[in-house]
């Protein structure tokens, strides 16, 4: 376990350090892009808690993200900045509350039914803001004054926002890493592998799953808040199933079952998207970026069954031709 942690922390520590230094030389475009990726990484980690850690394939994560974002905008006064001190908790709490509601009902189903029920609840939330007065029609709503914390934190400044997001990225990772090795996290891992055995051992699994679902929703709400504040804008697309699907692709691309996989997946997904969207590289074909992105993702999943997290292992095998699985080596030594 300690070994697992040191390897994970070394890589992620370097990544976080790199991200902290990036504003020293990054352009404003780059800063905005990396902020966006960091927010997606937080969101992807919230989904990883459900899919990779607990085995609950949630297809409605965008709803919690969108609720966090909409609360940030709807609760902000029109002509001045709101205080972070209550606006951020309000976003998280609102998303977590909806997750508690959705989880309480959807966790009574299993497998493909669970996927569809979570999707249905997300679509319900989507249609509350889609083309309605509350959601600002199809255009969405602007946030003219971004939240502040006295004179300490002013999120109207792009660099402050960048570091603010960075802090929450690190916090989310550390929080979830600690959570996953606790009593609670081990029970989630047990539920993922064999829920029946967990019940037979004396765990009432439903409250555990509901707690995980609610926590995940709260973190997704945090990501939504950050996104709304970054763009100064929300629109219904933030709650659409496209985003829920993209998030699933991110964590699969990165490698299910690993927190860092969610971060790597978010980076890979957005970079690939930017790459295939670039007219400088693809000219007119950039219009069809989804084709290139889709084919690349199919290739990745086919060649890297454990996701990008498994890339070093695959390369090592290619280079040294070792056929023995790593686990077996550890055991046999």
């Amino acid at each position: 376990m300690d070994k697992f942690f040191s390897g994970q922390f070394l890589f992620v520590g370097l990544l976080f350090a790199g991200l902290a230094l990036y504003p020293l030389f990054g352009s404003s475009y780059g800063l905005d892009l990396v902020s966006k990726i960091m927010i997606y990484a937080i969101l992807a980690m919230s989904l990883e808690l459900l899919v990779g850690s607990t085995g609950l394939v949630c297809f409605g994560q965008a709803a919690f993200f969108g609720i966090g974002a909409y609360i940030a905008v709807l609760f902000s006064p029109e002509s001045e900045s709101a205080s972070l001190l209550w606006l951020l908790p309000a976003s998280i709490l609102a998303a977590a509350t909806y997750a508690l509601f959705v989880g309480a009902l959807s966790l009574r189903t299993k497998g493909v039914y669970f996927i569809m029920v979570t999707l249905a609840f997300a679509q319900m939330a989507y249609y509350v803001v889609h083309d309605t007065k509350l959601g600002g029609g199809t255009d969405g709503i602007y946030l003219y004054f971004k939240p502040i914390l006295g004179s300490v934190i002013d999120l109207n400044d792009a660099k402050v926002l960048y570091f603010f997001t960075w802090v929450f990225l690190v916090w989310t990772f550390v929080f979830l890493a600690i959570l996953l090795r606790s009593h609670f996290g081990r029970v989630l891992a047990g539920i993922r592998i064999n829920e029946q055995r967990m019940r037979a051992s004396g765990f009432s699994t439903y409250p555990y799953k509901l707690a995980a679902f609610t926590t995940s929703g709260g973190i997704a709400g945090l990501a939504g808040f950050l996104f709304a504040v970054k763009d100064g804008f929300v629109n219904p697309e933030m709650m659409s199933w496209h985003l829920s699907g993209a998030l699933l692709i991110m964590i699969i691309l990165g490698g299910l079952g690993h927190l860092r996989g969610a971060i790597i997946g978010a980076f890979a997904f957005v970079f690939l998207q930017e790459f295939f969207k670039s007219p400088a590289i693809f000219g007119d074909f950039a219009k069809h970026w989804q084709l290139g992105l889709g084919l690349t993702i199919i290739a990745c999943v086919a060649l890297l069954p454990k996701g990008l997290v498994g890339l070093p292992e695959v390369l090592r095998k290619r280079l040294y031709g070792s056929r023995q699985p790593r686990d077996a080596q550890v055991v046999l030594k």
């Binding site: 376990m1 600690i178 090795r181 606790s182 009593h183 707690a211």
Partner: peptide, 9 residues
Amino acid sequence: PWVWWNDAQ
């Protein structure tokens, strides 16, 4: 489960 900071091991 609420003692989320303690290592289960």
